[in-house]
């Protein structure tokens, strides 16, 4: 892997987790944009190595952008048969901005974190919760990050993954979600184990 063969400094390795979390947040925040997709295509082998399978599958540079946009909409936005990747919905609260969302916001506040003023994504959106983990890891608050992961993201990620695996027409989102789940499980193991 090119990155590993690089003179990969200890500093780079230390920042790998928060950066990885941000990459994962970027994958789920919205549809892949052209720069992100260009990198994925250019580094396809490395990506396959990272995730254990090729997330781009049969996608090509010509069709990937459109296909992933349609896939993202189908899985996460709707308007039919989708599952918004937000905690309150996946946990079955039946509404956006439910009790889970409030709990997430309260956690952010206790940690000195808030949504950016121009950000219109829900606080309990998967990308926001990953961003929270990244921010905590960047400031060496691994224990708080673990607490947050277990209180929130790890509780509902299996449900989201099951939906995506059952409804995806492309490998992209299942592959990334599987990678995400494995990452979180490794980084934030249950403390009673």
């Amino acid at each position: 892997m090119a990155a590993e063969n690089n003179s990969s400094s200890a500093q780079a390795t230390d920042s790998a987790l928060p950066t990885a979390l941000r990459l994962l947040a970027s994958v789920f925040a919205r549809e892949a944009d052209q720069p992100l997709l260009d990198q994925f295509i250019a580094r396809r082998d490395e990506l396959t190595d990272v995730l254990g399978r090729d997330p781009l599958g049969a996608l090509t540079a010509d069709n990937a952008l459109e296909a992933l946009a349609v896939e993202y909409c189908h899985l996460f936005i709707g308007p039919k048969g989708h599952l918004p990747p937000v905690e309150s919905i996946v946990l079955g609260e039946g509404q956006l901005w439910g009790p889970s969302t409030e709990a997430v916001v309260e956690f952010y506040e206790r940690c000195g974190i808030a949504s950016r003023s121009d950000e219109r994504t829900f606080p309990d959106h998967i990308s926001m919760e990953l961003d929270c983990l990244a921010m905590l890891e960047e400031t060496d608050r691994h224990a708080e990050a673990g607490n947050f992961a277990h209180l929130h993201l790890l509780r509902w990620l299996p449900g989201l993954l099951a939906h995506v695996q059952a409804n995806a027409s492309l490998a992209f989102y299942p592959a990334w979600l599987e990678g995400l789940q494995a990452t979180l499980a490794d980084e934030y193991p249950q403390t009673d184990k």
Partner: peptide
């Protein structure tokens, strides 16, 4: 160690490539 591998590699991939 798959999770760790994903984290480290994805982080490096993102840092270097993106």
């Amino acid at each position: 160690d798959v999770g760790r591998r994903v984290a480290v590699k994805a982080g490096l991939l993102a840092a270097v490539g993106i």
